[in-house]
Design a protein around this nucleic acid. Structure first.
Lengths: 114, 114
DNA sequence: TTTAATAATCGTAATAATACGATATAGAAA
DNA sequence: TTTCTATATCGTATTATTACGATTATTAAA
């Protein structure tokens, strides 16, 4: 996943559409959904054990963590020889607003086929 | 996008995590976000003009529509020589529930790095 | 029927995502 | 310093996604 792929920078799409797509990409792999859920579940920062929690290679987890960090949904703090990761509340809430607006579009009159 | 890619069928992830990833993939391209927004905006079914609305080839739009239809978020009804597409309310609401649960996980105690 | 319009599908090229092992880096402990 | 531990990054193979033109299929209209 990259930020500057062709379709993301095209003027073809609105800012919102690009934002939705970008955030959705963060969740579009079950490993990242699992990482985020885990960070919420333990309700604190964790140093280390994500690799044990999810059965993927250390380098793969690191790659997923980097993507989540680039998007801003998590943050990492160096803690000695390990890194503590946790949800970035502020950015998570910003993301939630964007996604909520998208998910809660009004459907009331959209029923001609149903 | 396919439903049966390796990572989606692995027992490694929970049903929820796989569902979140699957739904997120639907939004993970700005063209699909745009198509869905457009279907909401016009508040009715549309026969045709999605191709004009979004500047992509007809075959590309058709591909995106197929993906959205496979996931169940939209439905198409043949109407003469064209096809009327609209949001599938029931499935959209199911998706919303899954995504809402994921997005609204409790953050209150998750503040040790912030 | 023939022709036109509309959308789906096919074939395929280009790009992106994913995974993993190997290696590098940085800090802690000895 | 040397060694250990934890994590990041590199290189790369595999697979998935995306886009588009060409073709096919279906229905409407002439």
């Amino acid at each position: 996943m990259r930020l500057n792929i062709f379709s993301m920078t095209e003027e073809k799409y609105t800012h919102t559409q690009k934002q939705v797509a970008l955030y959705a990409k963060a969740f579009a792999h079950p490993a990242r959904a699992a990482i985020l859920q885990y960070l919420f579940k333990i309700k604190t920062c964790i140093c280390g054990d994500i690799v044990d929690e999810i059965g993927l290679a250390q380098s793969t987890i690191s790659q997923h963590l980097k993507e989540l960090k680039n998007i801003g949904l998590i943050q990492g703090t160096i803690e000695g020889t390990s890194v503590c990761y946790c949800i970035n509340n502020e950015n998570w809430n910003k993301m939630k607003e964007v996604m909520n607006d998208f998910l809660h579009q009004d459907l009331s009159q959209n029923n001609c086929c149903q």
